[in-house]
């Protein structure tokens, strides 16, 4: 048992306690441990340092190291709450928590607002939305005339920017999302319900089992 014990301790050494992370999120302790299996695999894909770099995050998302993606970068930056340029295990679990089907809608709404508020001013500005639209069109190799893009922006801001000041604030976003619930679809990952079956090997590294024995 001594050998197994030291191996288990090594696996989570330096990372936040799964029991504490479970208490802060929609995940059970077993699910946090299963997420550690995923975290290990992503964080060791380029440099095995127990942290996820932007390059490793992108590699896990796109299976290649192609050019930077604005949207993947936004998610990475929001997971990286301490702005270290790296995601630790706690950041990873708390970030994914927002995407759990059971996470509160308000957390999903706040996260999505930050996602689109590129410069972090507390407002989603028309210029930011245009920048994201152009980035999306570029990455999907679609072309739209500038007047078509402006027309899409006009329509969106007529609906969302109710006080017509040219930017969307948090309360306007809340109302807009309420009318367009599909906007929060990207904020829910059904996979997170089945994380323990996707990564069953967590059982062999379980801290909880270790405590029980």
């Amino acid at each position: 048992m001594g050998c197994f014990h030291s191996k288990v301790k090594k696996k989570l050494r330096g990372h936040e306690d799964p029991v504490v992370l479970a208490s802060q999120t929609a995940f059970s302790v077993s699910e946090v441990e299963a997420l550690f299996e995923l975290f290990k695999s992503i964080s060791s894909s380029v440099i095995d340092d127990g942290l996820i770099s932007k390059e490793e995050f992108q590699l896990a998302l796109f299976k290649n190291r192609k050019k930077e993606n604005l949207f993947a970068n936004r998610i990475f930056d929001l997971f990286d709450v301490k702005q270290k340029g790296l995601i630790d295990f706690g950041d990873f679990v708390r970030g994914l928590h927002v995407f759990h089907p059971n996470a509160p809608q308000e957390e999903k709404m706040n996260f999505s607002f930050k996602l689109y508020d590129l410069d972090g001013t507390g407002f989603i500005e028309r210029q930011e939305v245009k920048q994201m639209l152009i980035a999306l069109l570029c990455e999907s190799e679609m072309k739209l005339a500038d007047e078509t893009i402006e027309s899409i922006l006009d329509k969106t801001f007529v609906e969302a920017d109710t006080n017509q000041d040219g930017k969307i604030d948090k309360s306007e976003w809340q109302i807009f999302v309420g009318r367009n619930p599909s906007l929060l679809k990207i904020m829910t990952l059904p996979y997170l319900r089945d994380i323990t079956t996707t990564f069953p090997s967590f059982v062999f590294h379980s801290e909880v089992d270790e405590v029980a024995t």
Binding site: L38, I42, A60, L61, F62, K63, N69, L70, F71, A72, N73, R74, I75, L96, F99, L115, Y116, V129, M132, L133, A135, L136, E139, S140, T148, S151, I152, L153, K155, T156, E159, N180, S182, L183, K185, I186, L189, Y191, I195, T198
Partner: peptide, 24 residues
């Protein structure tokens, strides 16, 4: 052009974290 800008933006694969869970 009756599309909503955010619905279009959300189509980016960069926002689709489900690929994190796909094993090679």
């Amino acid at each position: 052009t009756c599309l909503n800008a955010f619905d279009i933006i959300s189509l980016s694969p960069g926002f689709d974290l489900s690929s994190l869970f796909e094993k090679d």
